[in-house]
């Protein structure tokens, strides 16, 4: 579904990602772990199409097409979804307008009729329960005055409504208490299917206690330096990132 080859990207002339290679197939859940500042969010933003970052070399193929050629809205309509680490507050625009405009844009792209207000509300009502948010949430301005946890749940709500094929969740777990974390994890687990792929970006191993990934990658200083199975996450939790750095340094000698 997604194939990243030797991706170099940065901003303002400074390179942040120094050659990322990653392949995710439909049905898989991959986790990218790494310390703060290692480039996790940059990778997710580049995949979503944020033009703050420039791709200087490498390729990204999504469902067989050149992802980097697509505008952000086309990427979204083609089923790519990013749950932001820091979702932006948009005063004055109600959540429900955003959701409706988004869903109908995606449906239109798929050649489907827009949902009318009643069907739309029914759909959203069903999904909002899964993230345990109150319905009045829909009538509040997007992310405006939301707590950290509410923002993350709202991102997951959007994922559940928009039903993307590739979901990139950028630290959706940080700032959540254990109950909220479980709730989000359950939502993501229900979401897993053989047609969908999920890229979990996280700083801690905590989330991976509830969502078992097929593969774990360690991102350090803009490079994927180690990949493995779920046991790698446990090892990282026990030993931190330091040992990988040491291991790398030994190899370099």
């Amino acid at each position: 579904m997604l194939e990243i080859k030797n991706l170099h990207a940065g901003t303002g002339g400074a390179e942040i990602l120094h050659g990322i290679n990653l392949e995710i197939s439909a049905g898989e859940v991959h986790a990218i772990m790494g310390p703060n500042g290692s480039g996790k969010s940059t990778l997710s933003q580049v995949l979503a199409g944020n033009d703050t970052y420039q791709v200087t070399s490498g390729t990204v193929t999504y469902k067989g097409a050149d992802l980097l050629e697509l505008s952000p809205e086309l990427r979204a309509r083609e089923g790519l979804f990013l749950s932001f680490q820091y979702p932006v507050a948009i005063p004055g625009v109600n959540n429900i307008y955003l959701l409706q405009a988004a869903l109908n844009a995606i449906r239109k792209h798929r050649g489907e009729e827009p949902l009318d207000a009643i069907d739309f509300l029914e759909l959203v009502r069903g999904r909002i329960k899964e993230v345990d948010l109150d319905e009045e949430f829909l009538h509040r301005p997007v992310n405006d005055g939301f707590s950290g946890g509410e923002k993350k749940r709202n991102e997951i709500l959007q994922m559940l409504v928009l039903e993307p094929q590739l979901a990139i969740l950028d630290e959706t777990d940080s700032g959540l208490d254990i109950d909220a974390l479980k709730l989000i994890a359950e939502g993501v687990n229900r979401y897993r299917s053989s047609e969908r792929a999920i890229l979990l970006i996280t700083h801690y191993q905590r989330l991976l206690n509830y969502i078992s990934p097929d593969k774990v990658h360690v991102l350090l200083d803009g490079r994927i330096v180690k990949s493995g199975g779920p046991e790698l996450a446990v090892e990282l939790e026990e030993k931190g990132y330091g040992w990988i750095q040491e291991e790398l340094a030994e190899k370099a000698l």
């Binding site: 952000p72 979804f81 979702p87 955003l98 844009a105 959007q158």
Partner: peptide
């Protein structure tokens, strides 16, 4: 943010202006 939700720029601007 709007564009990552599939919303075209014109609609996004209109939503923001209304906002």
């Amino acid at each position: 943010y709007f564009s990552t939700r599939g919303i075209d720029e014109e609609t996004a601007r209109r939503l923001l202006i209304h906002g």
